[in-house]
Amino acid sequence: MLPIERQQRIIDELTINGRVIVTELVSLCHVSQETIRRDLNQLEKRGLLQRSHGGAVLPKRQAANIQGNIRAINEYELSFRQRINEHVDAKMAIAKRALDFISVGDCLLLDSSTTCFYLARQLPDIELTVLTNSLRIVQTLAARGSIRTICLGGEYSDRYEDFHGIVAEQPLKEFQINKIFFSCSSLGNDGYLREGNEHNAHLKQQMILAAERKHLLMDSSKFLRPSFARICHYRDVDFLITDQLKDKELEQELAWNGVNIIDCSQRSQSMQLIKN
């Protein structure tokens, strides 16, 4: 990781959490404590943070502005009930295609996106273990006799109909998760997947780290548009399943970074769900 990339990562972590700790940054960036301290000193000289014991915090004025922006973004973000009626055909097509990547006996992790809700509705009643922080998905799978459903608890959000926070993250360390299926608010010009609020972004970071295979479910309305809190770079994703990808330059960049693109608008021989 180049110094400029590392320092941007530090700023992103600071923006999401309000503070950073040297020891955590060492693990995150895979460098020495001395390197991280030099980065923090340089960022402090530029007025981007304020050093504190063992780490750094945001400058007071910047922290106040960010909190104001968070409130504005959260107020602007559509609720789950609103989002569930957007781009329905695209989400249904993506969900159906995602079934091709699910096998009997899998331990799956589904986030609380509306696209994953459509995927949960179409899951066949086969032997699966499904972990999710979505109340809607838990309710959807309750009637499936062969699917073991585990709800990631935590603080409940009525707006997003999901759970988040440390309590939701804790169980992720206890399971061997084969595959995650998730979505996000946007894939930006900088190559990073983002969410509209910092709570969902942080939980999805931990979800992605916990799973062996990463499947991003994203409809075409979310490409190259801005959003707030960073989740990860697209190079951390194994498969992108989308209704269509018209930007050839982005498609090439994704392929160069090892992302397998599954475009539902293109005719392709469908894989079969493994049943035995």
Rank of each mutant, 00 (worst) to 15 (best):
F80C: 01
N200D: 15
T115V: 15
L110K: 13
V167W: 07
E198H: 12
S113N: 03
K91D: 06
N189R: 12
L123T: 07
F175G: 00
A90S: 14
L131I: 05
G105S: 11
R83G: 08
L135R: 13
D158C: 00
L110R: 14
Y156D: 02
L119Y: 12
S146N: 15
S157D: 12
Y118F: 15
R83P: 05
D106S: 07
S103I: 00
Y118M: 08
Q122W: 05
I166V: 14
I180V: 12
N133F: 03
E127C: 09
L128Y: 01
T129F: 00
R159N: 07
Q170C: 07
D89C: 00
H87Y: 10
Q176N: 11
V167D: 06
Y156Q: 01
E155W: 04
C151I: 04
D100T: 06
K179F: 03
I94L: 05
I84E: 14
R159Y: 04
K91C: 09
A143Y: 07
F182G: 01
N178Y: 06
N189A: 15
R159V: 00
K204M: 08
S134M: 08
R144L: 09
P124R: 02
C151A: 13
S183G: 15
S146E: 12
G191T: 08
T129C: 01
Q122V: 11
A142E: 11
D89M: 05
S79T: 15
K96N: 13
R83T: 10
V130S: 05
I126L: 10
K91Y: 09
D162K: 09
S112I: 00
K91A: 08
Q170V: 03
E195R: 13
E161D: 15
Y156W: 08
L108Q: 10
L172H: 02
S157M: 02
P171E: 10
G153M: 03
R194T: 11
V130H: 03
T115F: 03
I150K: 10
Q139K: 11
L187R: 07
H199Q: 14
S103R: 13
Q176H: 13
G154I: 00
N200L: 11
A143E: 11
C151S: 10
I137P: 11
K173Q: 14
I137N: 06
G154P: 03
Y118A: 02
M92Y: 13
G196P: 05
A95M: 10
I94M: 09
F163Y: 15
L187M: 09
R148K: 15
D158A: 14
A98I: 02
T140M: 11
L141H: 14
L135C: 07
L108R: 09
M92W: 09
R148D: 02
C107P: 00
L119G: 02
F182N: 01
Q176S: 13
D111I: 07
G154E: 04
L128N: 03
F182H: 04
L109Y: 12
Q122P: 00
T140V: 10
E198K: 13
C116D: 04
L131E: 00
L172E: 03
D111Q: 06
K204L: 14
